[in-house]
């Protein structure tokens, strides 16, 4: 699992670097302008952020003994996953269609807001988890 993820991350990094080099080369040949190259790169960065964040809620981690702890960690992962995925898509959309000066500021603001939401909610759930009493899972019945 770790090897698969690392390989995927390395492949993605190679793709990103290759793309940057390709865009620079295309720019040196006057095939594309500097604005188009910048936009293409930033759209790719946004889509990579969205793709990674999309998988965030799936990474549920090991089973815990407390039902409340599991519910809270699941909730934190879902909030983080949704906010970062939407931020990644908004980042890509802004760099694709908005005027350059606006995209520069707005895309940063969008991702920063998503990070604040993710970390804030994660921190809040962690504190709530620590302050609450341990509640075992209700194993009332089985199928």
């Amino acid at each position: 699992m770790i090897l698969k993820r690392t390989s995927f991350a390395i492949a993605l990094a190679v793709l990103t670097l290759g793309m940057a080099a390709g865009l620079k080369y295309a720019g040196s040949l006057d095939l594309i302008g500097p604005e188009a190259a910048r936009r293409t790169m930033q759209v790719t960065v946004g889509l990579i952020l969205a793709a990674y964040s999309n998988l965030m809620p799936k990474d549920v981690g090991p089973w815990r003994a407390s039902a409340a702890a599991m519910a809270r960690s699941q909730s934190a992962l879902r909030v983080g996953g949704w906010s970062m995925t939407l931020a990644g898509l908004a980042y890509a959309g802004l760099w694709a269609f908005a005027p350059l000066a606006f995209a520069d500021v707005a895309s940063t603001a969008v991702v920063a807001s998503a990070m604040v939401i993710t970390l804030g909610y994660g921190g809040w759930t962690l504190l709530a988890c620590r302050s609450s009493k341990r509640q075992p899972l209700d194993v009332g019945g089985h199928v």
Binding site: M56, P57, V139
Partner: peptide, 13 residues
């Protein structure tokens, strides 16, 4: 867990 099977969500966005 014991005699019970516990399920949890594992869905991507």
């Amino acid at each position: 867990q014991g005699k019970a099977i516990i399920y949890r969500l594992k869905m991507s966005v």
